[in-house]
Amino acid sequence: MTQTPETPLLELRDLRVEFALPTQTVHAVRGVNLSLEAGKTLCIVGESGCGKSVTARAIMQLLDPPGRIAAGQILYHQDSAVLDVAAMDPRGKPVRALRGREMGMIFQEPMASLSPVHTIADQVGEGMRYHFGLTKKEALTRVLALLHQVGLANPERVAESYPFQLSGGMLQRCMIALALACQPRILIADEPTTALDVTTQAQILELMQQLQADTGTAIILITHDLGVVAEIADTVAVMYLGEVVEYGPVTDIFADPRHPYTQALMKSVLRVDVPRVPGSRLETIDGMVPSAATVTPGCAFASRCPEAMAGVCDRQRPQTMLINQQHSTACHRRVAEAQQPAPTAAYARRA
């Protein structure tokens, strides 16, 4: 299959991820369908515990035991071939050939992800030596160029350093360099700016956007910061308890959010363009995200939803419906609204 502009670079089809524990099974990802186009940015948003990071790790078969892909497909379009990453052995050679070379990942905590006993040069250059067969000297030359590319002022010193000798912002730049070392077609960033100050956050996001513009890399960004989403996303997937409840272009999601959960997330964001009443409090979402071990017959958000319909939302699974060709949501209320008969012409004139 030859990739065309209309062909997604990556497709998730009914992806399900489970963690089988001694006393229960955790259903972390529950039938997720997503697609990513070359050169585009997909942002996955939602509260903690909604399955965002597990989805990202599943794409690269990096699930910690006892996690496993229980069902579904992860289709990667590689030139003329279509590879199902979900069907690969997590420790097998085929998936190792994809990691780093075709897909790179920026983890949330670089200090926990980088080895404390190896220099930055060794860690960033390891993938180059494995995938391209470079010598250590050849890899070092490319590492220095890459460290300079990600905005580190003294690449030689950084390359010789160990992680504990560098600041958080420098470590995150090193993580980006490591993820981009083999020029992957897909970059997955799992909340890459969470632990950084505001200025460094802006620098890291600007760096990712510039690298994308220079290389055409497709980006999957996991975040809870809707301000970041508005700035860099092309497409947005809103996840709740392992499911995608709303999906579409960023302009549609922000201009016309249709799922009550998406609407609640938008209302909970402090906005500088909307005057606040003195002494008023920010809006919040009542309740908590249920445990991922919870399995309900109805909508997972029903217990927290201000629009929930008794006897429907708590008992029946909502079907995904199209708002337009690119914007979809899974909500009983939106289905009910769509089924309402249109007003007659005479009524419309009176209105």
Rank of each mutant, 00 (worst) to 15 (best):
V250P: 02
T215M: 14
V229N: 09
Y162A: 01
V150E: 04
D225H: 02
I176S: 04
D225N: 13
I186R: 06
V198G: 09
F164C: 10
L178G: 03
I220T: 08
Q172D: 04
A264Q: 03
T235K: 11
L166R: 01
A153Q: 14
T223G: 10
E191Y: 01
Q209C: 05
Q209S: 15
R142Y: 01
R173N: 00
V150H: 01
A218N: 11
Q203S: 12
A237S: 11
T215H: 14
Q212D: 08
Q183N: 15
M239A: 06
E231T: 10
E231N: 15
P192R: 09
Q210H: 13
M170C: 06
G242W: 01
D225G: 03
K137F: 02
A153M: 09
M170Y: 03
C174H: 01
M208Y: 07
G248W: 03
E243N: 12
T223I: 10
T199L: 11
A179R: 02
D252E: 15
D252R: 11
I176Y: 06
I186V: 14
T215C: 04
L147G: 04
A255K: 12
G169D: 01
A237K: 02
L187S: 05
A233Y: 05
D234K: 00
V245A: 05
V158P: 05
V150Y: 06
V158H: 00
M170I: 07
G151L: 08
E231Q: 15
Q210P: 00
F164V: 02
